[in-house]
Simulated scan of single mutants.
Amino acid sequence: MKLYMIRHGESEGNKLGKIQGSMDFPLSDKGILQADAVAEFCQTLRADYLYSSDLTRAYDTATAISATTGLPVQKWERLREVELGPMQGKTREEIAELFPQTKGKALIGSDIEGTETNQQIAERCESLLHQLKTAHQKEDTVLLVSHGGFISSLLTYMIVGHNLASAQRPFVIGNTSVTLIEWDKETDRYLLHYTNRTAHLDSVRADLHVKHGLL
Rank of each mutant, 00 (worst) to 15 (best):
E139R: 02
P100I: 13
E113R: 13
Q119S: 08
Q119P: 01
V142H: 03
T115V: 07
L143M: 10
L98K: 15
C125Q: 06
E116V: 04
D111T: 14
L98E: 15
Q131A: 02
G114L: 12
T115N: 12
D111V: 05
H130P: 01
Q119D: 12
A106P: 09
E116Y: 03
P100Y: 13
G109Y: 08
E113I: 12
F99R: 00
F150A: 00
T156Y: 03
I151D: 10
M87Q: 11
N118G: 04
S146T: 05
I95Q: 05
H130N: 09
Q137A: 04
E113C: 05
R124C: 06
Q88M: 15
L132G: 08
D111S: 13
G104A: 12
E93L: 11
Q101H: 14
L154R: 01
I151N: 09
E126P: 01
E94A: 03
H147L: 10
G148N: 08
T102W: 13
P86V: 09
N118E: 14
E93F: 07
S152T: 11
Q137L: 02
G114T: 08
F99Y: 15
E97F: 00
A122R: 02
L132F: 09
T134Q: 15
T91V: 07
K138A: 08
T141P: 01
L143W: 06
S110Y: 07
M87E: 08
Q137H: 02
G149K: 01
L144R: 04
Y157I: 00
E94S: 05
H147C: 00
G114W: 15
T115H: 07
K138V: 03
K90R: 15
N118V: 07
T117Q: 06
L144C: 03
M158Y: 02
G148V: 00
Q101N: 13
F99H: 11
Q119R: 06
S146V: 04
G114S: 09
K90V: 05
L98G: 12
Q120K: 11
I121L: 08
G148C: 01
F150H: 00
G89T: 04
L155C: 09
G89A: 13
G104M: 14
K105A: 08
Q131V: 05
L132I: 07
L143H: 03
E93N: 10
G149A: 01
T115G: 01
D140Y: 04
T156H: 04
K105N: 12
G109E: 07
S110D: 13
T91G: 09
E126W: 14
G109R: 01
Q131S: 09
L143T: 03
H130I: 11
A96W: 15
S153Y: 02
K133Q: 12
S152D: 13
Q137I: 09
G114E: 14
V145A: 05
F99L: 03
E126G: 02
G149Q: 00
R92G: 07
S146E: 08
E97M: 07
G114H: 14
E123S: 10
Q137F: 05
E116T: 12
R92H: 14
Q120N: 09
T102F: 10
E123G: 00
V142I: 15
Y157Q: 00
